[in-house]
Simulated scan of single mutants.
Amino acid sequence: MTAHPSPLLEVEGLRTVFDTRAGRAFAVDGVDIAVRPGECLGVVGESGSGKSVTFSSVMGIVRSPGHIEAGSIRFNGVDLRALSPQEMRKVRGRHIAMTMQDALTALNPALTVGEQILEVLYAHDETLPPERNARRKAAIAKAVEMLELVGIASAADRLRNYPHEFSGGMRQRIMIAIALACRPKLLIADEPTTALDVTIQAQVLELIADMRVKLGMSVVLITHDLGVVSEYCDRVMVMYAGQVVEQGPTEAVIGDPRHPYTKGLLGSIPRLSMRGHPITPIEGQVPDLIGLPPQCRFYSRCSERLDACLDVIEMREVGAARRARCIRLPEVEA
């Protein structure tokens, strides 16, 4: 049996809460994550399932009224929750980088793209020379290199352009260049193909896959698209209403989904092979995260529900390296 390497990122029992006037919203509730070196983990689920908040928690960028209430977050053996804000800033960008959903709003419209890449390099790149002119010259050379790496033509000239002077796909590439400027060990890509046409989506995803190989980094790919997950990810984690409901090797989960929610997501995807057959959407909506009852959170939308599902349902081993949160599934040896 081949031993798996120790996780680069290991999260246990993560709970992130938003205190609102209406009550406490458990946006992330008891989430466990393991991302191994060089691995690509896909994270899927409907809007409101807690995907982005989970990894914003990992990055330490959840804003008030949200806060992490419980759980441990370890990166490369370091307890991130024990770090001071100043120490955490040294981790973000240098060791863990994150790209946001909308490049146009994530990039600063008042700064050139060159200035935005240089900002990251000045903050985190310890290889830059100390002397001011030499430091700037070396940083500009690295900024050009990064733009070339992500496929921006005439990179030296484009450093002087502002975000609005680029197309949507090129802005996404620039945001990836900023994220990868210091060669992080882990890239968290949050919906990197939002609002892009199909051909540009494919280019951006191929770019991330290529950078993963070239830089030897791990990737977390947050997406709604199970087709993207099946093509690019080694493992998949399915989230619903702030909890993980199924996780395991991508091929196994997509080929034989065990949780009713995963089955519903796959059943909602139009396929050429299903021509003439209706698409079966999941009825209802993601529940309000305030005042949730102690039961399976998918209960109201599940066609397979039982009375026993009104109890708290824990994750259980359901196959080789597979876990799911469903009482109908027989537990097996891990």
Rank of each mutant, 00 (worst) to 15 (best):
R81V: 04
L111E: 07
L118C: 13
R92Q: 07
A110G: 10
A106V: 02
R81P: 02
L83Q: 05
H95G: 11
R74H: 14
M100K: 08
F75W: 13
R94D: 07
S72A: 15
I117H: 09
S72G: 13
M98F: 11
V120R: 14
E115P: 01
I68Q: 08
E119I: 04
R92T: 00
M100F: 14
I117M: 06
Q116H: 09
S72D: 14
M98V: 08
V78S: 03
T99V: 15
G71H: 05
D102E: 15
H95N: 13
L121N: 06
T105N: 02
H95C: 04
A106L: 01
G114E: 12
G93M: 10
R81W: 03
D79S: 07
A110H: 03
L118P: 04
A82G: 03
P85E: 03
M98H: 10
P85S: 08
Q101H: 02
M98S: 14
N108G: 00
V113K: 08
I96V: 14
G66M: 05
R81G: 09
I96Y: 12
A110I: 15
F75Q: 09
G71P: 10
I96F: 15
Y122S: 05
E69F: 12
I117G: 01
Q116W: 04
A106R: 08
L107W: 00
R94F: 02
R94T: 02
A106I: 04
E87D: 15
P85Y: 06
T112I: 04
P85Q: 03
D79V: 04
G66V: 04
S72I: 10
E69P: 09
E87P: 11
V120T: 13
N76A: 15
L107F: 00
M100D: 06
A97I: 11
I117Y: 04
V120C: 14
G114H: 14
Q116C: 06
T112V: 11
N108I: 01
L107E: 00
G66R: 01
V91P: 12
E119M: 10
L104R: 07
E119C: 03
V113F: 13
R94H: 14
T105D: 00
G93A: 06
I96M: 05
G71A: 06
R74P: 05
F75I: 01
M88N: 00
M88P: 08
K90E: 15
T105H: 02
R81Q: 09
Q101D: 06
K90Y: 05
A110S: 15
P85G: 11
G114A: 12
L80T: 04
R81K: 13
R81S: 02
G71Q: 06
P85D: 06
E69M: 12
G93P: 04
G114T: 10
Q116K: 02
T105V: 14
P109W: 13
A106N: 09
T112D: 10
A106D: 07
L107P: 01
A82R: 02
N108S: 01
V91S: 14
A70C: 09
G77A: 11
E115W: 03
L104W: 12
E115H: 11
L80K: 06
T105L: 05
T112G: 08
A110M: 14
H67G: 11
Q101A: 03
M98Y: 13
A70G: 10
L118Q: 13
I73F: 07
I96K: 08
I68E: 07
P65E: 02
V91D: 13
T112M: 09
A82N: 00
Q101F: 01
R94V: 08
D102K: 03
V113D: 07
A103H: 01
T99Y: 01
P85L: 03
T105E: 03
P65M: 10
K90G: 15
